[in-house]
């Protein structure tokens, strides 16, 4: 004698999208407001301002774009002060130029917490640049946390390479 409850199995159509995809370009803008605007990172390749020659001249201090930090530290060390202030002066003298500062950390610990720590590094460079004459609107400081290491592997050699802020000019 069968006492089965008869249940019709709900067809579990796979709720997920099945094909992989690249993100749609038009989605990138997103929500803005409250004085904070979406980023416009990628400038056009043609017709770029002449100042990029200066920025990429290896003999010019402006070609140096990375600030490195001690373990668990966010202060710009004195050896990078001149570099940061040179970029600040450049931004002051070229009001159309703008930078994105990307803070980075080594890979120990929570990814989101490291994102916040990397932000602190980028903000330290931003603050010094602002004091050096750059305008706030010319600078966006962001964090890549531990997600974009320059050096892979564990150990102080790799970690010290990854504790840094990179200075990237928009349109580069």
């Amino acid at each position: 004698m069968r006492k089965f409850l008869s249940i019709s199995m709900i067809v579990l159509l796979s709720a997920c999208a099945s094909q992989t995809t690249q993100p749609d370009d038009e989605m990138a803008g997103g929500a803005g407001g409250d004085g904070m605007s979406g980023s416009e990172l990628m400038g056009s390749g043609s017709g770029r301002p002449g100042y990029f020659n200066q920025l990429n001249d290896p003999s010019n201090i402006l070609s140096q774009r990375s600030v490195y930090y001690d373990y668990d530290s966010y202060t710009v060390k004195s050896e990078y002060r001149e570099l940061v202030l040179a970029h600040a002066r450049f931004l002051r003298d070229n009001p159309s130029a703008s930078v994105i500062l990307q803070g980075n950390t080594d890979d120990r610990g929570s990814r989101e917490y490291n994102l916040a720590l990397g932000q602190r590094r980028a903000d330290s460079v931003r603050n010094m640049m602002t004091l050096g004459g750059a305008r706030d609107a010319q600078i966006e400081s962001v964090s890549l946390g531990e997600e974009k290491p320059r050096a892979y592997g564990s150990g102080e050699t790799a970690w010290s390479q990854n504790r840094r802020t990179d200075i990237i000019y928009r349109g580069e």
């Binding site: 709720a15 997920c16 990138a28 803008g29 997103g30 904070m36 932000q119 966006e140």
Partner: peptide, 15 residues
């Protein structure tokens, strides 16, 4: 998930 439609919910200046 079903449509793969996506949108930026927070894309403010900074992180």
């Amino acid at each position: 998930l079903t449509t793969r439609e996506r949108r930026a919910v927070a894309s403010f200046k900074g992180s």
